[in-house]
């Protein structure tokens, strides 16, 4: 799970974004792209000293200004579960053919989980 894939999978999750200048933005992730540009909704912004606050309905952050993102503790597990569910759904929609196909290595199911 690459850092940016994790971020893409974290849509609608709350997160804290700290910018390089020390400002922080707390909000729900709406979208992000491969440059790490992100949009947040319901944002609380604080200045670098942490003594002034602003409330923003929505904001766009250029990826290059980001220092780090703090995401929910359970995100890694949640994203893994979500991936498993999607995979299982895809598998059953193809007609419930679950065994390894012809020419597939034994233990093919295991390969899917990597």
């Amino acid at each position: 799970m690459l850092p940016l894939s994790l971020l893409t999978a974290a849509q609608n999750k709350p997160m804290l974004v700290e910018l390089k200048n020390g400002e922080t933005l707390n909000g729900l992730l709406i979208n992000c792209d491969n440059f790490m540009n992100i949009t947040l909704r319901e944002v609380y912004q604080t200045n670098p000293d942490g003594d002034r606050f602003w409330k923003l309905k929505e904001c766009y952050i250029r990826g290059s200004t980001i220092k780090y993102l703090r995401v929910p503790d359970n995100l890694l597990d949640a994203v893994k579960d979500e991936q498993n569910r999607t995979r299982d759904a895809n598998r059953s929609s193809r007609g419930g053919h679950t065994g390894p196909g012809r020419g597939a290595p034994r233990g093919g199911n295991f390969l899917h989980t990597i």
């Binding site: 850092p3 994790l6 971020l7 390089k20 790490m36 990826g63 290059s64 980001i66 220092k67 780090y68 993102l69 703090r70 995401v71 929910p72 503790d73 995100l75 890694l76």
Partner: peptide, 11 residues
């Protein structure tokens, strides 16, 4: 403790 962190590489 600060949980799960995604750090932008250039920092």
């Amino acid at each position: 403790p600060i949980g799960v962190f995604v750090v932008r590489g250039e920092n």
